[in-house]
Amino acid sequence: MPEPSAPRVGLLVTCLVDLFRPSVGFAAVALLERAGCAVAVPQAQTCCGQPAYNSGDRGDAKAIARQVIAAFADYDYVVAPSGSCAGMVKVHYPQLFADEPDMRARAEDLATRTWELLSFLVDVRGMSEVAARWTKRATYHDACSGLRELGVKEQPRRLLASVHGLCLAEMPGAEVCCGFGGTFCVKYPEISDKMVGDKAAEIAASGAEAVLAGDLGCLLNIAGKLSRLGIRAEVRHVAEVLAGMTDAPAIAAPRR
């Protein structure tokens, strides 16, 4: 059990982790608890509202943002296992309420408390290593929002370097978008296909047995393309590896 003085962290589960891969949520909880946090999961959360926001539906985006702001009002920190959703709260909520001073203040307050999982562990909690073992040659895809909106780059690599048996094989284009882009991937499937096809080719060329990233949207896209192409590579959220929770089948992998 955490210390009574432990910081209270509200986990922003994200809609994709909730529906597709609860394992990532439990891995995030395990890492946060190991970092000395008391983790809670507000039931009143669904999604951060990014699909509405990026589709130009500002009204619904604001309504969903209000719900998130209320649901996470009482936590010292809000942590998401996703740079995309954390970036939505941290960078875009204040912009969304630019013309409503009261809500803007609340959004900015939430923004200062909100972190992407890896940057929270390393930059806020000072975590420098994990006690995990995973004997694989893996490559790391830098998901765009985490990288460019939140500066997530070294943090996952620092922690991965402490995983026993793990060898990181970097791709030259690790920072190039995988072509997910939320609704982009279904609105412009051929362009998305070219982008994720190039990503799959780089993964294959890296010689890695596994590909890791910090955002489930990208991972579903990459895993789906690797699977379609018949390229064997284990696709996992980085939190699963860092938490030592790699028993569940990988994303898009056969279950039996």
Partner: peptide
């Protein structure tokens, strides 16, 4: 662990498989 095609998701499955959810939601 994946779908090659899925109703209402053709934009996705046209070019890639859809990974199957693990089954239960996190919540």
């Amino acid at each position: 662990g994946r779908f090659r095609s899925l109703p209402l998701a053709s934009g996705w499955t046209l070019v890639r498989d859809m990974p199957a959810p693990e089954g239960r939601t996190f919540q």
